[in-house]
């Protein structure tokens, strides 16, 4: 693939997620999300994290196309942005919704199934983000691959969390779930070998 195109994509992978965070912040403080933007912020960050996860998983099938190998290098920044959005989503919940009431937060984190599922997903994303440092990557060697296969269960957990977070309806999470399943199906062979269990 042309070097210039890759360069442009690499820049966009950083600029777009950062720009959307900025837009979200602007919209929230200027009252464009209504007078009471907490829910809109949480939802926007949650959906954004899910889409970034999807994009992260789209990369390697695309990179298999002839000449598109360099795309693989976008996986790391996309994965890190996914974690960043998910972490902000979590922080928005802690801070803007639960107002840092730690007793309440502790209770909710263990009592509510959809929160537990989201938390598990976030922990996985956190572990993957930490171990994406090149030095650690090298040190972990073979283990790194196995560890990073956890992105697949994480993506299913994210869909489940989305589904269970809804008060009614199921169409949208089902669409995401189908897309993730499609992306997982493309890696059937690899998955069979790499599954963590």
């Amino acid at each position: 693939m042309p070097k210039r195109l890759f360069f442009l994509l690499h820049i966009l992978v950083h600029v777009i997620p950062a720009f959307f965070i900025f837009l979200l912040y602007q919209a929230a403080i200027n009252g464009k999300l209504g007078g009471e933007p907490v829910e809109a912020i949480i939802h926007f960050l949650g959906i954004g994290a899910l889409r970034l996860l999807l994009l992260t998983l789209v990369i390697s099938p695309l990179a298999r196309l002839r000449g598109f190998g360099p795309l693989n290098r976008l996986r790391r920044p996309l994965g890190l942005w996914c974690f960043t959005w998910a972490a902000l989503h979590f922080i928005a919940w802690l801070w803007l919704d639960l107002a840092l009431d730690w007793a309440l937060i502790g209770g909710e984190l263990v009592k509510r199934t959809y929160i537990v599922v989201g938390f598990l997903c976030l922990i996985i994303l956190f572990a993957l983000a930490l171990t994406s440092l090149p030095a650690l990557m090298r040190r972990l060697g073979k283990k790194w691959k196995r560890l990073h296969a956890w992105i697949y269960p994480a993506s299913l957990l994210a869909c489940l969390h989305f589904w269970w977070s809804l008060k009614s309806g199921w169409i949208e999470p089902a669409i995401y779930l189908a897309l993730f399943c499609f992306l997982l199906a493309l890696r059937k062979k690899k998955l069979a070998n790499a599954l963590p269990w």
């Binding site: 966009l12 777009i16 959307f20 837009l23 979200l24 919209a27 464009k32 999300l33 209504g34 933007p37 809109a40 939802h43 926007f44 959906i47 889409r51 999807l54 994009l55 309806g169 949208e172 669409i175 995401y176 897309l179």
Partner: peptide, 27 residues
């Protein structure tokens, strides 16, 4: 067009149209 509307979720029909409308200045 830049790909952020992936999976159709920023279509006007989406349950999240509200957020997008807010972000893009429909006051």
């Amino acid at each position: 067009g830049m790909g952020f509307g992936l999976a159709g979720a920023s279509l006007p029909l989406s349950g999240h149209a509200g957020v997008f409308d807010g972000l893009f200045g429909k006051d």
